[in-house]
Design a protein around this nucleic acid. Structure first.
Lengths: 187, 187, 187, 187
DNA sequence: TGTTAAGCGAGACGGTACGTCGCGTCTTAAT
DNA sequence: ATTAAGACGCGACGTACCGTCTCGCTTAACA
C-alpha cells in the first residue's frame, strides 16, 4: 500500500558508487561520499542497503561484466583463452584492492559472503561449462567432483594474482593451464 | 644518551593484540583497545609500529606457529600429511576473518604486503621443501618453475577455504592432492 | 467527488499525541510516533496541523481541563483556593517539561505563540473574573490595568514553579497571596 | 598525568557558539556549526560539554554580563532603575528564543537546570541586595522570606516579557514596581 | 654519579565516517 | 479525492578510531 523503494534512487547510488571506486579507489568509497555525489540521501541508501559494505558489494557486482565462454574444442585452449581475458582485468591494482575489501567484508558477514559468492560463481560459470564440454568430449575424467575441479582451476590463478600479487605472463598462464589439464585429462 | 625502545612495551602490545583478536575477533582489534588492554601508551605503540595495520600483521605473525615438514618418501602422502595439519587451523572462522583483514590491509599498503608475504612464504616453506625432495627422488619433473608450482599447490586449498569458505574433508584433501600430484609427477 | 477532512482522523491524532506525552513525556512526542500509534498517516496529520509543534500545542490544549472559578467573597481566599488547585497540577515533572517545550516552540513561531497564548488566557480566566468581582465589591482599586494585574498575579507562581522549579507549599501560596492582595486592595 | 583539557579549545568553542547565536539565533545553534566555525573538533566539544545543550547553556552564561546594583535610597526607585536596564535587554526576540530554549532544555535535564539556575540567581543578585538594603532602612517588613520575595518581584516581569511576550513600557514598569513596593513596605 | 635527552603512561586533539533520528514532502494503492 | 503506509531529501546527532600532540614522570647512557 505504501510507496515502493524507488529503483531510481538505488541506481543513482550504485552509479555514484561505481564512479567513486573508479576515480578514488576503494579507500575513497564512503556512504557519505556516495550520498553526496549521487544526490541520494544517506537515509535512503540505508533503506536500500543494509550497510555500506552491502552497497559496495552491489556496486562491485555491477562492475564486473560477464565473460564469454570460449569453445575451441580443447580444454587447454579454452582455459588459456578464458584466462587471457580474465587475468588482465585483475591487473589493475585498484581492482585488486577493491576485491580484497569485498572479500574482507564478506569474511565478517555471512549475508555479504553469500551475495558475493553467488556473484563470483556466476562470473566463473564459463569455466564450469568448459569442463563439462570437455567431459562430453571424453577429454576429462567423468567421475570428478565439479566443485572441487572449479577450485582446482581457479585457485592457482587467484592465489598468484590476488594473494601473492605476482605477475602472470602469457607463458605463466600456459604453464599453469598445462599442469591443470594434465591433472584433469586422460593420459 | 637517550634510551632505547623497550622490548617489553612491544611485547605487551603484541600480547594484548593477540588476546583481543582471540576474544573479540579482528573487528575488535583497535589501536585504542590494544593500548588500553596492554597499558602501553598509544604513542609508544606508534613508536614501535608504523600503523595499526602493521601491529596487526605483527600480531598475526606471532599467532601462526611454524609447521613441521613431513618426509614420508612420496609427494602425495607428504602433501596430505601437511594439509591435514594446516587446514584445520584455517577452520576457525575468527582466523579466516583475521587473515582476510590482513590481506585486505596488505592490498592497500605495499610495505604491509611485503611483510605479510615474507611471513606467508616462510610458513609455506615445507611445501617447497617437499617438492624439492620429490624432484631429488625423480618423482617430480625437474624443469618446473617452483614458484608456479607453489601457487599450483597452495591455490586450490586456499581458494576453497578462504574465498569460497567451503569445507575441506579428508577425502577432499586426498582428491585434491591426487590431482596435484598427477600433474606434477612423471607418468 | 471530494471528501472533507475527517474530524475522526484529527481526533485520533490528538488522542495518540496525548497518550504519547503521557507515557513517554514530551521527548517521546514525534510526528512519526503519533502517526504510527494513531494509524493516521503523516500526510493527514500535516493536513490538519501546520507543523508538529502545532499538533503538540493542540494536544496540550486538550490536556488541560478548565478550572472552576471560586467565589468565596474575598479575593485572598478566592486566589488561595484557585492556586491550591492549579499548582499541584504543575507539580508533575513531565507536565513541566511539556509546558516548557510548548513555550520554547512558541518563542520561535508567532502563530504558535498566538494559539498558545489564547489557550493560556482562557485557562487563567478565573483569575480575571475573581479580580473583577473583587473590584465590584470595592475590595480592589478600580483604576488598575487588568492585564498588568494578571501578570502580577500569575507571574510569581509561574516563575517559582516552572522557571525556578521550586516547591510551593500551602504556606508559600498563602504568603504569596497575602503579598499580592496587599498590593491590590485598599488599605 | 595525562594532558589536561585545553582551556583554549573550550574558549574557542564558546566564542563560536556566541557568534552563531548572535548571527543566526538559537535555531542556527548546532554542535556541527560550532565545530566548523571554531575549528574545534566535534569530538573535543563533547569532551568539554556533555551535550550540545550544555554547551548552549555555557555560551548563554557568557552572554549575559552582570548588572549593576542601583542604590538610590528607596526600594521603588532602585527597582525601577534596575528594571529599566534589564528589560530592554530581553526585548531582542533572538534573546527571548535563546532563553526559552535554555529553559526548555533545562526542564529535561536536572544538571542543566542546576547550572542555569545558579547563573540566573547570580544575575538577579542585585534585586536581593536592594531588598536587604531596604530592610536595613526599615522600609521593608523584616520578617519576609527573601526567596519568596525574589519570585514575587521577578515573576511578573519575566512572565509578561518572556511568556506572554508583551511589551513593558516605562509606565508599565512603574505601575508594576508600585504594586510590588506597596506589598512589601510598611504602610 | 649526576645530567639529560629519550622513552613512557595517559589521554586530549583535529579529523573523517559511521549509522540513526526527526522533519516535512511526495508517491503509491486502496477505499 | 482522501486516506494509510512509508520512501524521499535533508541536516543534526553522538560515537568510534585514526594518527598526532602534549603532559609529567621515569630511566638509561653519557659525561
Amino acid at each position: 500500500m505504501a510507496r515502493p523503494l524507488s529503483e531510481e534512487a538505488r541506481q543513482k547510488a550504485l552509479d555514484a558508487a561505481l564512479e567513486i571506486i573508479g576515480e578514488l579507489g576503494i579507500d575513497g568509497f564512503t556512504v557519505d561520499a556516495v550520498a553526496k555525489r549521487s544526490g541520494v540521501a544517506k537515509t535512503t541508501i540505508y533503506r536500500h542497503f543494509a550497510s555500506g559494505n552491502e552497497l559496495m558489494i552491489a556496486a562491485v557486482d555491477c562492475m564486473v561484466q560477464p565473460f564469454a565462454t570460449p569453445n575451441t574444442g580443447s580444454l587447454a585452449s579454452d582455459l588459456e583463452a578464458f584466462m587471457e581475458i580474465v587475468i588482465p582485468i585483475m591487473d589493475d591494482h585498484s581492482m585488486q584492492r577493491t576485491m580484497m575489501s569485498v572479500l574482507s567484508a564478506a569474511a565478517s558477514d555471512p549475508e555479504l559472503a553469500r551475495v558475493h559468492h553467488e556473484l563470483m560463481q556466476e562470473r566463473m560459470l564459463p569455466i564450469r561449462t568448459m569442463v563439462e564440454l570437455a567431459q562430453g568430449r571424453g577429454e576429462v575424467l567423468p567421475e570428478l567432483d565439479l566443485d572441487l575441479v572449479m577450485d582446482f582451476i581457479e585457485g592457482p590463478f587467484f592465489f598468484r594474482k590476488m594473494i601473492r600479487q605476482q605477475a602472470l605472463t602469457g607463458d605463466d598462464i600456459r604453464s599453469m593451464v598445462d599442469l591443470i589439464v594434465k591433472a584433469l585429462t586422460l593420459p
